[in-house]
Design a protein around this nucleic acid. Structure first.
Lengths: 209, 209, 209, 209
DNA sequence: CCGTAACCGAGACGGTACGTCTCGTCTTGGA
DNA sequence: TCCAAGACGAGACGTACCGTCTCGGTTACGG
């Protein structure tokens, strides 16, 4: 039996001195996230400053820099915290996959149209698009459970014979949501209920047995 | 005595003093756009500053503020100029719509994978996503001609009976490109030739007569 | 004839980019010096901050950093400006060197005792003691003319036969003023008129023919 | 009815919670003083921080704040400890007051010229000049014994008839040392052996019978 | 053909925010 | 209870850029 290697870490190099999470002030964390949500709504993401967050939260700037890498990570956490409270996602399953998908996509369209959601969601998306590490966290903590719920609904339709057994469900999800997302993000066209319906109809045509 | 005339003039209001485009220095314009392209490649969009552009271009800051609204518009123009040089877009038409689309999407995948293109294209996309006015310009001057070429190829396939006569070609384009775009922008999955092929196959299934 | 050498400069090395004094804003300069004098009086030298000076003066911080090396140099200039306005110094010459010196030293004692002068003069002295470059400027621009006036009074006494012809007048000045200065700076003893008188009497004993 | 008692209590007032000196860790005290001496030499007094002292000494910051009022008092103690080890001061007494004083002043000049002493002594002096309480401590614990030794040498010269019986010895000491001190502190002139000699000669002229 | 009015490079200005540093206080866990 | 350790609110540091505002210099009309 060979001895367990003690330290396989290839690059310690004068450790960057991480803070101790056990001693973190929960009160400060909440204050920062709350202030961030308020300020994003008030002045928008681009004009958001760490200075302003600290002031609004009644917190020292160092406390923010100690626990977050960048403005983007703070904003991300601020909305992540909100979403995680929201709890599990359940999609409707009436047995009619077309009707159910239309309902879900119309709901998504409505969400994108709500100006109160629009600004922060856009900010969050830009942040994610520009930072691979945030993107990874986003996928794991926010997108994954939602996607799984959507995939499950498609699987149910498969079992009901409404979708081909050999369909690639991940690709199917992308076909459903990416056009919506792109229209919204780049404002390349109107986002309406009719559009959502047409989208669902086209995609289902590709998926039916 | 006649009443003092109210100022019903709806527009001038201490005119904002537009510069005279006729006297604009072409040399300065080119220097700014060139310096901008260099700097975006070197330091990325987020760390790009007007100050640095002016210094690199050997140009006064005022010259930039005189002719561009914001950092975003400069970057936009810098890449617009490049693309417009590229000239008209023509898509292959071998008569086989599936093969042609696969070739085009694989080319797009390759472009997204090229790290030299990646950074500035991403920067440009973030800028467009965050600024509706830039988005409009982008659609008119860059996206429109390319989209028209793509639509024309689909129309040709329609005439050849490879695509249903009543298909919505705009939606078809979105179904083809949006999933690719989303994967790239949010890094939600690998971008490979196989993926492009599968995408084309699925979408065509929805479009065939 | 040999060609004129183009560049004999031995150490250019990415020049530190000096600002152009010709374009300096006199209004800003005055505002900074004024604000500095006010703040030194109000909060003392130790608690004086560049930030506060800039705010009080209605000036950007960079404007201070552009023209002054350190907090010390600003304070120095602030009081230098005051003193230089004061104009030429003239010492009394009644013909009685002892009486005149007593009067002058008593005046100095009174100045040191005045709390309005005390704080800033002490701040200035600490700054000078800690920064050789400031010390040099202080000697040239403030101390030199005053010292020359004092030396001239002693020379006049020499001509009148009240002081030895071969006396070292610079040393004489130090003997007169250094004890006073030391008592004040280190608070090693009471500063009174009697002390000034005793000092003059002792020093004159060393200087008389 | 008796009058409400006035609070004649001169001290407690919501007691400031003094630590118990008996339980003080000698190891910590030494570590702090040692680290302080090192750091003053390395970075100078102005850039010295409590934070850095604590880190270098391997001591909690609170331990410093518990036992010292300010950065100045720590520095002061650090050098005080050094000097007190040095033990009693004895001045030479060859019977020739002029030769003896010249030797002593030349030694002082040499000390001031030594760059290893220069920096910390200057730091200490600035601190004393800016803090009356430190100044008092300095006089009692450091200056007093040295001054007494010097005064004793002058008294001995008085007994020997080399100095007038009615001379003010305290003033004499100031006449001897203040010029030296001032030249050093403000760098107003060269500090040489010749200067020390000239100083002694002038002062003695004022003191002789 | 000669002002004179624009653009131009340059860069100082009043500001905002950055990210770091240190202050002096407070909290935790170990001896 | 003291200590090492270090998180905390606070706020100054010195730097980077912002967008505006002069400065001279240099075109390029238009009287």
């Amino acid at each position: 039996m060979s001895p367990a290697p003690r330290n396989t870490d290839p690059a310690p190099e004068t450790a960057p001195k991480r803070p101790d999470p056990a001693r973190r002030s929960e009160r400060s964390r909440q204050a920062v996230l709350g202030a961030t949500r308020e300020l994003v709504s008030e002045v928008g993401y681009a004009k958001l400053s760490i200075e302003a967050i600290a002031a609004r939260a009644g917190v020292g700037k160092q406390t923010i820099y100690r626990w977050w890498r960048s403005k983007g990570t703070v904003v991300f956490d601020a909305f992540l915290a909100l979403s995680e409270e929201a709890g599990g996602v359940v999609l409707p399953d009436t047995g009619d996959i077309e009707a159910d998908l239309k309902a879900v996509l119309r709901a998504t369209v409505a969400e994108f149209a709500d100006p109160a959601f629009e600004a922060p969601i856009r900010a969050l998306n830009l942040e994610i698009a520009g930072d691979p590490e945030l993107a990874a966290q986003y996928r794991e903590r926010l997108a994954a459970p939602v996607d799984e719920a959507k995939r499950e609904r498609l699987r149910s339709a498969q079992r009901a014979g409404q979708i081909r057994a050999d369909a690639d469900l991940d690709l199917a999800l992308e076909l459903l949501y990416a056009p919506l997302y792109q229209r919204w993000l780049l404002r390349t066209g109107p986002l309406t209920g009719e559009y959502a319906d047409a989208l669902v109809e086209h995609v289902l045509r590709a998926l039916r047995p």
